[in-house]
């Protein structure tokens, strides 16, 4: 399987630079005497400006892969390279710096700070970032310019998720990692959120990875990577990306 990945990417990567690369990534969780192999020897390359959808059933290793690529978790073996430099060997503080400077995260349950308004939730990140957008500009990108001073409790789920996206992109990350961003939303709201992600990818050129169960969402990606049993089972390249607005489920 890994060979497929290499071939697929080598065919089209001549002009494009690799943003993030995982080499021979494995992750083994130990629960008592039982070893659970969440990832088995995965190689993956993410190109600059690319929109990738990671598809797979529960337990297939999607989130583990995303967490390792984003520096939230460390692999049991294998390496992660960012811009050609290895980040897996770094210490905790360096990983924090990597996340702070280069990675944006969007979660299924938004994870906004309930005691801060939309603007402040974004500002939380822009305060510690190098060369961020203004919080207002970031919220503008996700279409929430009118809800700046609302607290999370005063926003709908879709709005909360778009605040989370604004918060993730405000620091102009190189990579945007989204774990089931529409998982808790109905389809109409979900599409609004996907449109926001699509806008970010198009306008800012941010490498975007979206984890989902939802096969339909694969339509808006450059590449769809399928995982099963901790391995990449298939990589497909869409000849034509569909607009998020054209999706429905």
């Amino acid at each position: 399987m890994p060979r497929t990945t290499t071939m697929a990417s080598s065919a089209s990567s001549t002009a494009r630079k690799i943003a993030l690369r995982g080499a021979a990534l494995s992750k083994v969780y130990r629960a008592g005497d039982v070893a659970v192999h969440a990832l088995r020897d995965v190689d993956i390359e993410l190109y600059r400006g690319e929109f990738v959808v990671l598809l797979g059933p529960s337990g297939s290793g999607k989130s583990t892969l995303l967490n390792i690529l984003g520096g939230l978790d460390v692999p049991s073996s294998g390496q992660v390279y960012f811009d050609g430099a290895e980040i897996t060997a770094r210490d905790e503080a360096a990983l924090t710096r990597f996340r702070r400077d280069h990675v944006g995260f969007v979660f299924q349950f938004y994870n906004l700070v309930p005691s801060l308004t939309a603007r402040e939730n974004v500002a939380l990140v822009t305060e510690i970032a190098r060369d961020p957008m203004t919080p207002e500009a970031a919220l503008e990108v996700v279409g929430l310019a009118g809800r700046l001073d609302h607290f999370p409790a005063e926003l709908s789920g879709g709005e909360q998720q778009r605040v989370a996206i604004a918060r993730a992109i405000a620091k102009r990350p190189d990579v945007l990692l989204c774990d089931e961003p529409t998982g808790a939303l109905d389809s109409v709201t979900g599409i609004l959120v996907l449109e926001a992600l699509e806008g970010v990818n198009r306008e800012l050129g941010t490498t975007t990875v979206v984890i989902t169960h939802n096969v339909t969402i694969g339509g808006m990606a450059d590449r769809v990577i399928r995982l099963a049993d901790g391995r990449i089972s298939e990589i497909t390249r869409n000849a034509q990306r569909r607009r998020a607005a054209q999706l429905s489920w």
Partner: peptide, 10 residues
């Protein structure tokens, strides 16, 4: 934990 993910230090 969210803040840690967002890049805040311990």
């Amino acid at each position: 934990a969210t803040l840690r993910v967002l890049g805040f230090s311990r």
